[in-house]
Amino acid sequence: MDTIVWLMVWCLILGSFVGFLAGLLGIGGGLIIVPALLYLLPKVGISEPHLLYVAIATSLSAIILTSASSAKAHWGRGNVDFTVLKALLPGIVIGAFLSGFIAKAFLGAYLQQVFAIFVMLMAINMWFPLKVNAAAGLPSNSVIFVIGIIIAMISGLMGIGGGVLLVPFLVWCGLAMAKAVGTSSMIGIVIACFGSLGYITTGWDVHSLPAGTLGYIYVPALLAIVSTSVLTAPLGAKAASIWPTPILKRIFALLLIVIGVKLLLS
């Protein structure tokens, strides 16, 4: 019991940090939550073969509430394009659900290396933001379907909401930035929900996981993270109008590089 309390205290702190960063810099929490959980979860008996899966699944499930809060705000401002949302949803649902099965097919060490490289790529993109030129409009439904599957699978494998991949794609499709972000936040809920369901399904019959897990999701850590992240995200959003966010993004990018290198070498 003492170790669970210890973990939840640290996850409350983690949630506060992640929520504030999400509001301040507009980043998804998975890039921080997953590495932090890789350190914390062994203390409560989650063994090496399942550690990365539990960290990713717990991060992904935490994004459900974060995305819902963001989506509600964007919905109220009319920043959701339902035509694009409807076109993307079938591929998003399939890709997100399959991500848990694909993750289990990976050897944990290889998946950790893939995650480490992804973290470093996101850091580079944060330092040198990708500039996307809008195309004439939406591609064909079959192309959107395939792209939706790919984006959702990558997001589910990395334990993120997908905004870092979806927003550039939607801007390329011709959406204004506000609509791209708002539509992405709605899709993030779907990715997180169906991705979490995939990890619940694949982890359901794993008997070596400790009490408190739902499939591969470690519920005590999840509850602690979301209980504070939803409180600090608005504070981060307020600070964004005062603090020098471009400089802070570069500092955070350096932090991600360090995390990525450490994961790659461990």
Results as ranks from 00 to 15, higher is better:
S142K: 11
I4S: 05
V54D: 06
A176Q: 13
T202L: 08
M177L: 14
L7S: 05
V190S: 12
A57T: 08
F97Y: 10
A36E: 03
L41C: 08
I225R: 02
L89M: 12
G45I: 02
L7V: 08
L175R: 06
S266A: 12
Y39T: 07
A178N: 13
P42T: 04
A109C: 02
P244G: 01
S155I: 01
P139N: 07
I13S: 07
S70D: 04
K72D: 10
C193W: 14
I151C: 12
G260F: 15
N133A: 15
G215N: 05
I144R: 12
A136S: 11
V206M: 02
T3G: 09
T58Q: 05
F17W: 14
W243N: 01
I4W: 11
L24M: 12
L263A: 09
T183F: 11
V171G: 07
S140I: 03
L52H: 07
S140W: 13
V54R: 04
P220F: 15
M120A: 14
I33T: 11
P129D: 07
A136M: 07
T245G: 09
A135H: 13
F82W: 15
M153P: 04
G95E: 03
F17C: 08
P234H: 02
I102H: 05
I13M: 14
G30M: 03
G162I: 09
I247G: 01
Q112S: 14
K43E: 15
G78P: 06
L166V: 04
V84L: 14
M1Q: 06
I147T: 07
M126I: 09
S241F: 14
Y216I: 02
G162T: 08
F169P: 00
A178P: 14
F145T: 00
A152R: 01
S16E: 06
G29T: 12
V164Q: 00
I242P: 07
D81N: 14
L255Y: 15
A55I: 05
L111R: 01
W172T: 00
I32M: 11
Q113E: 13
I242L: 13
K262R: 13
R250D: 11
P35T: 05
T58N: 06
R77D: 12
I102G: 01
I200F: 13
A237S: 04
I154G: 02
M122C: 10
A134V: 10
P168D: 08
L263H: 10
V93W: 11
A96N: 08
G15C: 12
L231P: 13
L214A: 11
L214S: 12
F101M: 01
L222S: 03
T66G: 13
A192I: 02
V190R: 03
S208E: 14
I63D: 02
L60M: 09
G76V: 00
I27H: 10
L130W: 12
W204A: 12
A123L: 08
W127R: 00
A152D: 01
L165P: 02
C193V: 13
L222D: 03
T228G: 09
I32P: 09
F115T: 00
V18A: 04
R77V: 03
V114H: 02
F118W: 12
K131I: 13
I33Y: 11
S67R: 04
I64G: 01
L40G: 09
N141Q: 14
V230L: 15
W75A: 07
G198P: 03
G215V: 00
L21N: 05
I56D: 04
Y218A: 03
P210T: 06
G29D: 06
V258E: 08
I191C: 08
P246A: 00
